[in-house]
């Protein structure tokens, strides 16, 4: 829905009822609704085949495992909305996790170990933002370079040693207030905050404006550079929080870059309906995208897809989701065009 707010709706003398109907239709046609429907239908299909899938514990596992991807995908979505991309997130995740673990293991206060990844995440992403906004290096190049630097630097500094014997209080993600794993609270709360902020704050709207039409945004007095810095800063914040959820889940921290995570995060954002060309997309879609990916992964185990075909089926389902989004978008465009 937010996807199209930047475009004026066709003028019509619709009655309140007509407007409501139109609103309902817009909602039913939104990528968020389609994704939510996809998650539910897929879950039901798997559940019909293997009822154990529907157990509360399993559903909570899926959500909990989606959380760090979802939170990172929130930041990624905002970056992609401005027409940029960040492929260094996985490397950053590895670096920040190591920083947090090293602080915790060297008897610094726990809150510092939690805060550090956020602060460093923001700083590093602001640096990327600086490269992109002020030095005019395309984001894909800047982050490709940063990925190398972070990945190599991490091994160079740590030698790849794992971090053991973390203090008990460090494991934030293992806590389960009210029987629900902590990462789930983070995922929903952050998504909600981001969704509200993107929709109602001036900066949020400016982000869409920059992604939608740079020139028009500039003419209307929006500083593109400032917006880009903000966007990468937010991404850093999200990667920082995502790191905490990721790193405090395990008893040991692996001082390496988790393989292929950047692709999972970008995929979550993309199937969440963010347009890679910029200008549209929602954070709720990104969260649902992350959940859908995990549901597919988990569901396939439950319906006994051969392990050799797991990846292919996953790729196929992702392709289908993307195509649905494309067709939906096209129909909306032509409806507006009329």
């Amino acid at each position: 829905m937010t996807a199209t707010t930047s475009k004026p709706l066709p003028q019509s003398e619709a009655t309140p009822l007509g407007q409501q109907l139109r609103g309902l239709l817009a909602f039913l046609g939104s990528q968020e609704f389609i994704l939510a429907l996809g998650i539910v239908l897929l879950s039901l299909a798997v559940y019909a085949d293997n009822p154990r899938f529907g157990a509360e514990r399993n559903l909570l596992s899926i959500l909990s495992n989606s959380a760090y991807i979802a939170v990172a995908a929130l930041g990624m979505t905002v970056v992609i909305i401005t027409g940029n991309i960040d492929i260094s997130v996985a490397a950053l995740l590895g670096v920040l996790g190591t920083i947090a673990g090293q602080l915790a293991v060297h008897d610094y206060p726990i809150w510092l170990a939690w805060l550090a990844p956020i602060v460093f995440g923001i700083l590093i992403e602001l640096f990327i933002g600086f490269l992109v906004a002020y030095l005019r290096i395309p984001a894909i190049v800047a982050t490709l370079g940063m990925m190398s630097v972070l990945k190599g630097g991490l091994i160079f500094v740590t030698g790849g040693a794992w971090i053991y014997d973390l203090p008990k209080g460090f494991f934030l993600a293992q806590r389960q207030p009210l029987g629900i794993p902590m990462p789930i609270y983070f995922m929903f709360a952050l998504t909600l905050l981001m969704a509200i902020w993107m929709r109602y704050s001036a900066t949020g709207r400016a982000i869409y404006a920059v992604g939608g039409n740079r020139e028009a945004a500039r003419l209307s007095g929006i500083s593109e550079k400032r917006i880009l810095m903000t966007v990468f800063g937010i991404n850093g914040l999200m990667v920082g929080i995502s790191t905490i959820l990721f790193a405090t889940q395990f008893t040991t921290i692996q001082s390496t870059v988790p393989p292929g995570v950047e692709l999972t995060i970008i995929t979550a954002a993309v199937i969440g309906g963010v347009s890679i060309l910029g200008g549209s997309g929602t954070v709720i879609g990104a969260m649902l995208g992350a959940i859908l990916i995990r549901t597919i992964q988990s569901g396939m185990i439950f319906v006994n897809v051969s392990a050799y075909w797991l990846q292919a089926v996953q790729g196929l389902l992702i392709l289908l989701t993307v195509l649905v989004d494309i067709f939906r978008r096209r129909r909306q465009m032509s409806a507006i065009g009329k």
Binding site: I85, L263, I266, T267, V270, S275, I276, L277, S306, Y308, W309, L310, Q311, A312, V313, Q314, G315, L316, I318, L319, V322, L323, I326, R330
Partner: peptide
Amino acid sequence: FIVYVRVPPIIMTLATLALYRGMAYGISQ
């Protein structure tokens, strides 16, 4: 897909990145 369905190249190839790799695993077992 890129030309006739007008799927943005980065999205199309991101999806087939997973798909083709999966085919490689699946067919070769």
